[in-house]
Write a protein that binds this DNA or RNA. Structure first.
Lengths: 250, 250
DNA sequence: ACCTGAACACCGTTCAAGT
DNA sequence: ACCTGAACACCGTTCAAGT
């Protein structure tokens, strides 16, 4: 499925690392991988992922659709490039001293990136993405936060995965709730539902629903960083689970 | 975006709860919500989500494309119905006594469901899905596992979210790695990468890569249930974090 | 060499018409 | 009432042709 180059790497990977220089001889009207990806991201940010069509990207650059295929061999490849470009991590970031605060700071960086480009969450996080520059920078940074921890490499990589997946899931949830403008369940709707969600069939859920703990879901004051309680809860659990694991084996 | 009925609920929700009986008068060639959803799931299971087109679903049932629109007002609605139907939980399941084992058993149920219908992971887990019958059964079951725990409703719902998101992410990863037949990075590919992933720019990642801890990723012996170490690691962390939280406040 | 124009095989969805 | 046939406005991608 994913196109591979003669090096055995997915083509998107080689492009992202700049190994796929577009030959610069002959007429060059100024198209490039960078410009194409940037235009596509701009569209995704403002109009959503579904608005990213080859025609829309080309048009926004003032070229014909087909010109894109000089640089990108399929739409899938373009999406992979967008995915990596949406996580622009600086090199050599300094994290807080303690590993706990370090991991939290790292998670917050990821969270910011996901929040500014929520559509990345709709893309499958496949194997290729893990080999791309910004993903690798993120991994490096996560390992930096854990550098003093007495854990195996395998465990550290696992923790990076667990945390980044949690962050992704939390932002996805946050985003879906924020889009409730359209769906907003009315009181009448909830009443209708209660007729069929009986205490007999849902003994544990019904009490929670009746106190508004299930769907009401805190209107999210979206003021600043730390407001999403679900995000904090999960991160707290993971980190204190980690403290536990270290103290019982280190 | 999502169609709502006069009750204020998304149409997919009312259909899933059986509140949207298709009127049975006049000629009825035997189409129904259930048959349409089942046919669509069959296609997704065998040929992937992208093979689920309105035309393909209709054809597999022996009807024209347009006949589906009598039952489903858009493809999005059909996808929402598929999402819920892919998680067929029995009512009144008995979970192990201890809450730890209960939560593990609950997570394993979810995992099984995701594994048999991996394409659900490609669908956005929106707000509507949380109101559908099987999602609510899953929530009820998760709450059952935690019934004796001294936690607020809010915390319990948060934990259900954290765990189910972790399970989803773990299965997604597992699935992506399993699809590595196509992408399989060659040694030559890794060598090429190493030229650009320098120890100078990736000081913490490079040692891990060189010991094969980053991308090699255990060929997954896929024999039985408990083989995915990343799944276990995350679940362990969450549960022991939970033990911690309870012991310091209960 | 880079880009264009025309064309192909698909999508989801609407609408008027049949029974 | 349920279903069909024709049509519309889109997709991604191909290929041969222009400069």
């Amino acid at each position: 499925m994913a196109d591979t180059t003669e090096t055995g790497l997915p083509r998107a990977v080689t492009i992202a690392w700049g190994m796929q220089e577009a030959p610069q001889r002959g007429p060059n009207r100024g198209l490039s991988h960078e410009r194409i990806v940037a235009a596509a991201i701009e569209i995704a940010d403002t109009q959503g992922l579904s608005a990213v069509t080859m025609q829309a990207v080309a048009k926004s650059l003032g070229f014909t659709t087909m010109s894109l295929y000089r640089y990108v061999s399929s739409k899938e490849e373009l999406l992979q490039l967008m995915q990596d470009a949406a996580l622009p991590l600086q090199e050599k970031v300094k994290l807080p001293q303690s590993w706990q605060q370090g991991l939290r700071a790292w998670a917050n960086l990821l969270r910011e990136a996901y929040r500014s480009h929520p559509w990345v969450l709709d893309l499958p996080r496949g194997q290729a993405s893990v080999l791309m520059p910004n993903s690798m920078r993120a991994a490096d940074l996560g390992l930096q936060a854990m550098r003093e921890l007495p854990l195996s490499d395998f465990e550290k990589v696992g923790i990076i995965l667990v945390i980044s997946q949690h962050v992704a899931a939390a932002v996805e949830l946050e985003q879906n709730l924020a889009a409730e403008d359209e769906v907003e369940i009315s009181q009448e709707g909830m009443d209708t539902l209660r007729e069929v969600v009986t205490a007999e069939r849902f003994p544990h859920l019904v009490p929670v629903m009746d106190t508004g703990g299930y769907v009401a879901g805190a209107p999210a004051e979206a003021d600043d960083e730390g407001v999403d309680p679900e995000y904090d809860l999960g991160l707290d659990l993971i980190i204190s689970g980690l403290e536990q694991r270290i103290s019982t084996q280190g």
